[in-house]
Design a protein around this nucleic acid. Structure first.
Lengths: 215, 215
DNA sequence: GAGTTACGCTACGGCCCGTAGCGAAAGCCG
DNA sequence: CGGCTTTCGCTACGGGCCGTAGCGTAACTC
């Protein structure tokens, strides 16, 4: 198993020395796009590396020079989708939470995301390297949204500033797992829609629970 | 794709007519046990149907007579594990919730469960039949725990009886997704342990949120 | 131009899938 | 008991995909 570093563009890295033909940057984009396209059409289990390469207009060997296998490829292909997630300032914590819940749900509605996310997480239960990749490519980036939302709420006076930084970190992690977990579970396991009504109910539950946490 | 009904013992069903050699009931058990064993050792992606058959001491053809493929097989193999989940009456809603959270987490700690659950959910995003199978074999059975806990809490006077049955059902679904989702996300995505401290914090958040939901 | 690296292409051994065909075994029934 | 039916274990097979190797060519640096 060759270690391939993660990056928006794997081609940016591999050239240890300097000389030689540079890796085609367009190829990376084409491969990732082709991966998402294949995921939509076929689902995780039926996607083959060979097929992705063909769709991307690239030789299979070229693909294998950049990614070690299907898992790594799919993580990178899907990771960029999560960058869409933003936390717009809507003036109140409740509105902010509701909006991010709906945005996250919309993201999970896209077939490439729902399929890939679970499959990759499943594979990661047996693969430490893959777990790290998911962590840096997806989880950590999203956790920032929690911190951002809390900071804003504190600035507004909706939440108290916390004295104990350890407790504050624990709470942030808890909130993150509750929000992301509930949305994912609702969408993928219960297989029911996250609509405005659900988002409202969930937000009410979360926020009043949150208030009592920090008292 | 041949439709195979779900049951604890698939062999109980297939005999359309009557006469002929009956299916070996031990074989079913051996196959399911072998499936779980293989999942622990190899992880989802490396488990092969042929290997499972060999471990079970059964011909591959025999296995294919009962299950259509890897997905169906694994769902059934893992479903029985969820039957362990119970809701002991510990005298208070908080204690009940905390205990079920820890039990659920312990279940997800077992490698065969964590690996299989996510993989099957992932596959189900593209397979309606599989989704139904998961629903009846796993989800619905667990949802009962929520109803049971609520009924007990209401009997204790910890929660009000709800007038609107539709709202009550919505709330139960919400609670279910929040509990199961948070635990799953914490263990499998964030990859951090669900210990007593986390369970306590989560329960506090949930219960105080819950109180405000029904006001 | 010389050196280096990536490219597309082809071909390969190996593994696994899912099915078919066989004779033997295990039940039911007259 | 002998016939009927269905499952059993076994073997064999075509087909698909994996991941790698080897080739000649293309692109870029010094």
């Amino acid at each position: 198993m060759v270690a391939v570093m993660h990056s928006e563009h794997p081609s940016a890295i591999p050239q240890n020395g300097r000389s030689g033909r540079p890796r085609s940057v367009e190829a990376d984009g084409a491969i990732l796009r082709a991966t998402r396209e294949a995921l939509v059409e076929l689902g995780w289990s039926k996607v083959t590396v060979g097929d992705v390469a063909t769709r991307a207009g690239v030789a299979k060997t070229t693909l294998y020079r950049r990614w070690a296998g299907k898992n790594e490829l799919v993580v990178d292909a899907v990771a960029v989708l999560f960058d869409e997630l933003e936390l717009p300032d809507l003036g109140s914590l409740a509105a902010d939470v509701e909006s991010v819940v709906l945005r996250f749900a919309a993201l999970l509605d896209r077939p490439e995301t729902r399929t890939a996310l679970m499959a990759v997480v499943a594979e990661a239960t047996r693969d430490e390297a893959l777990r790290r990749r998911i962590r840096t490519a997806i989880v950590d980036r999203q956790k920032c949204l929690v911190l951002e939302g809390r900071a804003r709420a504190q600035a507004r006076g909706e939440l108290p500033y916390e004295d104990d930084p350890a407790a504050a970190a624990r709470n942030a992690d808890l909130i993150f797992d509750v929000i992301a977990g509930a949305v994912v579970h609702r969408t993928l396991v219960s297989a029911e829609p996250v609509d405005a009504g659900w988002a409202r109910g969930f937000t009410v539950l979360l926020l009043s629970g949150l208030a009592s946490l920090q008292r």
